[in-house]
Each structure stands twice: as C-alpha cells, then as structure tokens.
C-alpha cells in the first residue's frame, strides 16, 4: 500500500467507527495528538493525587479518611492504565515523566488550586470529578482502542468519586451553620476553575476540529461545559447552595442555563504556570521522582542479581 492508501484505509476505519489498534497504521499527527492527550490525562491523575492527599492525615473521621485514601488510590490506578495506554503508542512512562517534570507536558490546571478546608474534598469530588466525567464519558467511544477501554474503567470509578464528593457536600449542607459556610466557601472557589476544565471556548481551541474529525474527541469544549452547568445548577439546588455566578439564569429558548463571563485571562495564566500552586505541585512530583531514584535503581539491581544467580544455577544443573 502507498501512504495514500494507508491514509484512506485509516479514514475508512474512523468513518465506520472501527477502533484503531496499536499495530494499525495511523497518521503521525493522530499518534502525536493521542500521546499528548493521554499523557496529559495520566499526568492529571497523578498530580491530582496531591491536593486531596493534603487531607488524608486531617480527614475529620476515620471513615472519611478511608474513603479518601481509597479514592486517591483509584487515581493512582487511573494514572497507571493511562500511562500504559500511552505506551502502546511507542512512548515510555519515563519519557512522559520527563516531559511532565520539564514543564513540556501539561496537566489539568484545576490541580494548581489549593485545598484549604475539608469541604474542598467534597467540592473536588462533586465538581472536578463531575467535570472530568463529562469530558471522559464520550472518550469511552474514542477511536483509539486502548484509550477507549481504559476510559471505561476510569469512568466507572470517577462516577463513584463524584457521588462520594456530592455526599460530603450534602452532609455539610445538612450540618451546622459553620459546615454550610464551609461548603459554600468551597463551592465559590471551585466553581469557575471547574468550568475552565473544559478548555478554552471552541473558537479559541486549536485542536478541537481535528480531534473531532478523528473521533478522539466526541463533543466540543463549549458543548461539554454547557452540559456540566445544566446538571450542576440542579445539584446545587439540592444542596441548598447559592450559585457563585449571579448571571446563572434558565434560558427557555436555548433549553440551557445562561452563565456569566469566564475569566479566561486567569485560565491562561494558570496554564502558563502562574496559578497558586503550579510551582509547588511540580516541585513535589519532581522531588518524589528524584528521591525515589535510588529505590528504583535498587529494585533493578536486585532483579539483575537474581536473574544472574538463577541463570548460573540453571547452567550448573
């Protein structure tokens, strides 16, 4: 086949909704786009462990501590499946870490915001995982097979996380005045950054059109954002919390909620590294990786020694 006919075959698979598998031919840009997207997602899971990890030692009850630990452990697991999915595209986990640590690769900007109170554990589950699910459910049908399959498992667990976050918020809003205040404060801080999680408006999103064509992306940033707002406004009513956006208003004609202006200047600044915790998060990841080097080296050295000993024993036998 010529490159041209490879491309035709690939396009046909995409158009017929047949998944692309690691050994299939794929355009270089498709591969690059996937590596970028999957690794960003994997990095987000791993960096995302940090803001919640802050509260493991301070969780208000033993039950909450256990649930939080289990949740963060799930995130580490998601990081693993996603790095593995990325590896099927011919890139190693170590290379991807290098890209994260050098600042070349991005992760979800939401994790550059601080977790200041216990209510933030609720808000992150409810809003951040809620937004993540909106983004991720369509990815269960994404065109690249290993990614789509990883996402099926990720989404199941994320939906559990979203419910437990909502449940933390519900407990707080049914609690004392102080607890309600804690919940509202947290909602106010996490609402706008959650909306930014869907990425820039479609008009300013450089990758959207091509990704939709390749069926890597199924819905645009703005479509997903609107869907999230519509659902979350109703959930906030159940919690009895005030919307942090005074312009939220039901639009009969559109069949959607209208909402106020998002501060994209803040978004681009946080992406650029100017968020409240960018430096801290990245330094923490780098430190863990660097301080773990001697441990990984020891494990490799020991495995080598064992192999040599076993080979010698086999030869002697």
């Amino acid at each position: 086949m010529t490159v041209h006919s490879f491309q035709e075959h690939f396009d046909k698979l995409i158009d017929n909704e047949v998944t692309i598998e690691p050994k299939d031919w794929m355009p270089d840009d498709y591969r690059k786009t996937l590596i970028r997207q999957i690794s960003q997602h994997a990095h987000s899971e791993v960096v995302g462990m940090l803001p919640e990890g802050n509260w493991i030692t301070r969780a208000p009850s033993l039950r909450r501590k256990a649930v939080l630990l289990a949740k963060i452990q799930d995130e580490a697991g998601h990081g693993l499946y996603l790095y593995s999915a990325a590896e099927t595209l011919g890139v190693s986990r170590d290379d991807l870490y290098d890209q994260l640590h050098s600042g070349k690769a991005k992760y979800s900007s939401i994790f550059n915001y601080p977790t200041l109170t216990w209510a933030d554990m609720g808000a992150i589950g409810w809003l951040v995982d809620g937004a993540a699910i909106m983004n991720q459910v369509p990815l269960c049908r994404t065109s690249y097979g290993p990614y789509a399959r990883a996402m099926v498992r990720v989404c199941k667990e994320e939906s559990f996380h979203q419910r437990q976050g909502f449940e933390i918020m519900l407990t707080l809003s049914n609690g004392t005045e102080v607890q309600k205040k804690m919940a509202q404060d947290s909602f106010n801080r996490w609402w706008w950054p959650s909306l930014m999680m869907f990425g820039p408006p479609d008009a300013d999103s450089p990758h959207t059109a091509q990704s939709v064509r390749w069926r890597i992306k199924r819905l645009t940033n703005d479509e997903l954002r609107q869907k999230f707002i519509d659902v979350t406004v109703e959930q906030a009513k159940v919690l009895g919390l005030d919307m942090p956006d005074k312009d939220i208003k039901w639009n009969e004609e559109r069949g959607h909620y209208d909402f106020g202006a998002i501060n994209w200047d803040e978004f681009y600044n946080v992406v650029k590294g100017n968020g409240p915790c960018n430096k801290q998060r990245l330094e923490t990841r780098k430190k863990a990786w660097e301080e773990g080097k001697w441990v990984r080296d020891a494990a490799m050295a020991h495995a080598e020694k064992r192999k040599t000993r076993m080979n010698k024993a086999a030869q002697a036998a």
């Binding site: 493991i56 630990l69 773990g292 441990v295």
Partner: peptide, 26 residues
C-alpha cells in the same frame, strides 16, 4: 503510610502503600 500517598518512588508502590494503609485503618 498514608503520608506517602502521592509521594512514592514509583506509582505501583504508591498504590501498594495506600492499600496497606487502608488495611491498617480498617
């Protein structure tokens, strides 16, 4: 052991430690 969560030398061991922390907590 929970203090290690997110700071382990490699992701697999981060998960193992959290698992163990959960057992102790349980």
């Amino acid at each position: 052991l929970g203090e290690w969560c997110g700071h382990g030398p490699v992701l697999e061991q981060d998960i193992a430690l959290t698992n163990t922390a959960l057992d102790h907590l349980g």
